[in-house]
């Protein structure tokens, strides 16, 4: 027996988003390393910079598509089901009757790309589900649908 992958992928533009995020990270690291290189130019520091460039380039090219393939989600009339991660795979299932809040969040990059992250929380500090990189309008619809579904169940969801 095993967990099947959820049905839906996120928006393909999420790949671009993650790519830009990674690029930003490596850029910062590179600027710091290059700054150090400017003051103390030793051979091994040049090596470090070269390694950062190579690792960064490979990471930016290779990982976002893998992340896109692994990050999938599904909402049935009973539950929300999300999976993420490659090195550490992570599946989360929460029944709609136990959902407490549904939020969307957009960072500056996501705003520019027209993407949203939907966060679904339950009464436990641990049971939080995140669907990252949905198309903005679609995310808004999903939130509405989920909110309606959770309002349909009475009680304080503990």
């Amino acid at each position: 027996m095993r967990l099947r992958p959820p049905n839906n992928p996120v928006h393909p533009r999420a790949t671009t988003w993650w790519r830009l995020q990674d690029a930003g990270f490596y850029l910062v690291v590179l600027v710091v390393a290059a700054g150090a290189l400017f003051w103390v130019s030793t051979a091994w520091l040049v090596g470090v910079v070269a390694v950062i460039v190579v690792v960064g380039a490979v990471d930016i090219v290779v990982t976002p598509p893998i992340r896109y393939r692994k990050h999938r989600w599904e909402v049935t009339d009973q539950a929300v089901y999300v999976r993420t991660g490659f090195f550490v795979e992570d599946w989360r299932v929460a029944p709609l009757s136990r959902v407490q809040t549904v939020d969307t969040k957009r960072g500056p990059l996501q705003q520019w790309l027209g993407l949203s992250t939907v966060t679904i929380t339950t009464a436990s500090t641990a049971g939080e589900l995140k669907i990252k990189g949905l198309e903005r309008g679609f995310a808004a619809e999903l939130v509405e649908q989920l909110t309606a579904a959770t309002e349909a169940t009475p009680g304080d969801a503990t």
Partner: peptide, 11 residues
């Protein structure tokens, strides 16, 4: 009392 499930494993 269980309100959600999470499963994890590394490669």
């Amino acid at each position: 009392g269980i309100i959600a499930w999470q499963f994890r494993r590394t490669v």
